[in-house]
Amino acid sequence: MEPFMKIESVPELLHLEPWREQYGQITAGFTGRAGGTGKQPYDSFNCALHVGDDPGDVLSNRRLLAASLGFRLEDWTCGEQTHGTDIAVITEQDRGRGSLDRASAFQATDGLLTSVPGVLLTSFYADCVPLFFYDPAHQAVGLAHAGWKGTVAGIAAAMVQRMELVYGTRPEEIRAAIGPSIGECCYEVDDVVMDHVRRMETGLKPDTEAGTRKLYRRSAKDSSKSMLNLKEMNQRIMIKAGILPIHIECTTWCTSCNSDLFFSYRKENGVTGRMTSWIGIKER
Rank of each mutant, 00 (worst) to 15 (best):
P3M: 10
F4G: 01
F4K: 09
M5F: 15
P11W: 02
E12P: 11
L14H: 11
H15G: 12
W19A: 10
R20L: 13
Q22H: 14
Q22A: 15
A28D: 07
F30M: 06
T31E: 03
R33D: 00
G38D: 06
K39M: 10
Q40S: 14
D43P: 11
D54Q: 12
P55T: 04
P55K: 08
G56F: 09
D57R: 10
N61F: 01
N61I: 09
R62N: 12
L65K: 06
A66D: 03
A67E: 13
L73K: 04
L73F: 08
T77E: 02
G79C: 00
G79N: 03
T91H: 13
T91W: 08
E92T: 13
D94S: 06
R95M: 05
R95W: 05
D101K: 12
L112K: 05
T114W: 08
T114I: 12
L121P: 02
S123P: 02
D127N: 07
V129K: 05
V129N: 05
Y134N: 13
Y134R: 12
Y134P: 04
A137S: 14
Q139N: 12
A140I: 03
V141Y: 05
G142R: 00
L143T: 00
A144W: 00
A144P: 07
H145P: 04
G147M: 02
V152C: 06
I155L: 05
I155G: 07
A156T: 03
A156G: 09
A158N: 09
V160G: 00
E164F: 11
E164Y: 10
L165C: 13
I174T: 08
A176R: 07
A176E: 09
A177P: 07
G179A: 03
P180E: 06
P180F: 03
S181F: 00
I182S: 03
I182M: 08
I182W: 00
E184T: 11
C185A: 15
C185Q: 15
C186N: 00
Y187V: 02
Y187G: 08
E188Y: 05
E188H: 11
V189E: 01
V192I: 14
V193K: 07
M194I: 09
M194F: 05
H196F: 11
R199A: 14
M200W: 12
E201I: 06
E201H: 13
T202A: 15
T202R: 15
G203C: 11
G203S: 12
G211W: 10
T212K: 15
R213N: 14
K214R: 15
K214L: 15
R217Q: 09
S223H: 13
S223P: 13
M227G: 06
N229A: 12
K231T: 07
K231D: 03
M233S: 10
N234H: 04
N234G: 06
I237C: 11
K240G: 13
A241Y: 12
G242V: 00
I243F: 09
I243T: 03
L244G: 12
I248A: 04
E249I: 04
C250F: 12
C257M: 05
S259Y: 03
D260R: 07
L261F: 03
L261N: 00
N269F: 01
N269M: 02
N269G: 01
T272V: 06
G273Q: 03
M275S: 00
M275F: 01
M275T: 03
T276A: 01
S277C: 15
W278N: 05
I279W: 06
I281Y: 07
